[in-house]
Design a protein around this nucleic acid. Structure first.
Lengths: 351, 351
DNA sequence: GTGAAAGCGCTAACAG
DNA sequence: CTGTTAGCGCTTTCAC
């Protein structure tokens, strides 16, 4: 069923059918109704490929998940507690808004080409990029081409520096700095002074912010920073396991540890308990993200909640606005985190 | 950069460029090399929309997640421990094979149209359908249109009945019946005789099979089936919570319970423990699926592992074969489950 | 072997 | 208001 046939059946031309389909105003109600009836009767849906070729959008958005690492074994998304819920939420929300979603993973530098390709081939009307290690060059090319773009967890200043003209971009970040400070202040209020930190990948905006907030907050409270207490985790479980084990072997433990994310906090809990170190009795642990696991583990993990669903909602919302070209939007949107106190931290009773 | 420009630069016609791009044999190596060089130099990629319009495939597959329910509040995929890993695995694997993936959720009957639409609009070359409540009518229409299709968890006999001609379909199921029997036999070997069952949605093939296996196995072991011990869970957490609570209130507990999936088993554990009923001391519990949670909960859940990743691999593999049209494939593929014994079941010491 | 030309289904500028 | 016409970029007969 093509527009020509509908036209014939309705006794009009293809152009008129097109006008009706695209909701042009200059079609009399009578004609419109006549055409619409035939369209509905035959369940006609215009061919998207032809539409796209002729210059219209494709009604689909791209979701790119980048997880570039030096390692051979990549951190596959299906086993990542942070990506997975976001991905699924985006799909769900986009579909509800009538968009198709093209999802693509990026594990190597050359995969970035897939993003530009998807845009230049008109496969997508707009895109969302999430993940570690965003490629600045690619991002700038996309922005300069004025493709509607939403970037999750990215340094907005980088965009400001590279782009004099404001374009169609929105960056969505969370209050990583404040969230980290909140958690730390909570730990300090519990009487902790020897507070360790498991850092994430600092090539990530949030990873960088959380580490900075840790150092700043510790200093601000007149606590001496002990570099031995800053563990490298890089958001990778295996690496975290090793770092924590080394800390245990050093026989010099902090009384509390804040982790840059829950996945690493959970690993730490596991390693500590295997070594007979009880949580929260012997050491307090807090995380960041509030992944589903966090609340179901024993003891339940105290953590800083990242509103993943809200972030997905905002991403779709902004992208939708940009695609519809009602207005151009260039902004950073910051969602608030929230400290969720559970059972993994205890008050330090000073003698 | 379009084929015409490449043609000009290479000193040939668009047709020749097309032939080179599509790997036609009747192009002399010399010409091919000449064209290829220009293509690579300018990083030319043919426009997929135009290609699709002209009759070629789009190099993208569709992934449809159906979760139809009578309820208003749908069981969103992003919070479903069974769908999420499969979805993510499929995306990952498809991307690795060079496919783009279009993901779509289906929450209402009318959403099924999106599947046929995606195909008829040539948005996708093939599709994978997973989830509850598959719409037989839609599926038959798709099969008869000969669209490459992989269906997860579906009764193959339904397809055999409705389709005399063998078409391009493969159904991927797991050994639900055997897996259930394995778990039950394990429980029986532990000395349990009063074994309850939390059933899933019987509108699902796996849900039906698991229930059937439960009844058969219990009977086969000369144990009387107590209908009070068969709890309705329908793969829904809230429903499960209520069913379990009612069982507790009845004061007549089985000594062990097998759940149709882990999510419900986890809910049951939670409800029991809230009522002061210890696992596995007071009651043994086993699940099905082996979701990531299962191994990290305390006590770790004994369950039947569903090889989700393998299922995703097979789905892509078969779909790929069908799309390439090397051969037509019509078959059912059954992946094996495996009993994973952990800590949630204990031997019943008879006096 | 390779180019010319038609066509995939749709939109948009141009007339009327 | 509405039909006619010319593309969008590619594939594919059909000749040469």
């Amino acid at each position: 069923m093509k527009s020509e046939e509908i036209a014939k059946l309705a006794g009009v031309s293809r152009s008129t059918v097109s006008r009706v389909v695209n909701n042009y105003k200059n079609v009399p109600k009578e004609t419109r109704d006549k055409v619409m009836q035939v369209i509905e009767q035959y369940n006609y849906v215009p061919n998207t490929m032809a539409r796209a070729l002729a210059g219209k959008g494709t009604n689909t958005i791209g979701l790119f998940i980048v997880s570039v690492s030096d390692k051979k074994s990549h951190n596959r998304i299906y086993q990542n507690n942070y990506f997975a819920p976001f991905v699924d939420a985006v799909i769900d929300l986009a579909n509800q808004s009538g968009y198709y979603v093209l999802v693509h993973t990026i594990y190597e530098k050359k995969d970035f080409l897939k993003i530009t390709e998807a845009f230049s081939q008109k496969r997508i009307d707009g895109g969302i990029i999430i993940g570690t290690e965003k490629n600045t060059e690619t991002i700038n090319r996309l922005i300069n081409a004025d493709y509607p773009l939403v970037i999750i967890d990215y340094d907005f200043n980088e965009i400001l520096n590279f782009n004099t003209q404001k374009k169609n971009v929105v960056v969505i970040n969370s209050s990583d700095y404040e969230g980290t400070a909140d958690a730390l202040n909570y730990l300090i209020s519990l009487g902790h002074k020897k507070i360790g930190f498991i850092s994430g990948r600092t090539s990530t905006f949030s990873g960088k912010q959380r580490l900075k907030a840790y150092k700043d907050t510790i200093k601000k409270n007149n606590i001496l920073i002990n570099d031995d207490f800053i563990l490298k985790g890089d958001f990778i479980k295996e690496k975290t396991r090793n770092s924590v084990q080394r800390l245990i072997d050093s026989k010099n433990l902090p009384t509390a540890i804040l982790s840059s994310n829950d996945d690493m906090a959970l690993v730490a809990m596991d390693v500590f308990e295997s070594s007979g170190i009880k949580i929260p009795d012997d050491i307090s642990i807090a995380g960041f993200d509030d992944v589903p696991f966090a609340s179901q583990v024993h003891p339940a993990l105290t953590t800083v909640r990242l509103p993943v669903y809200l972030m997905a909602e905002k991403a779709i919302e902004f992208l939708s606005i940009m695609i519809k070209k009602d207005t151009t939007v260039f902004t950073q949107f910051i969602v608030s985190t929230e400290l969720v106190i559970r059972e993994s931290c205890r008050e330090l009773i000073s003698d």
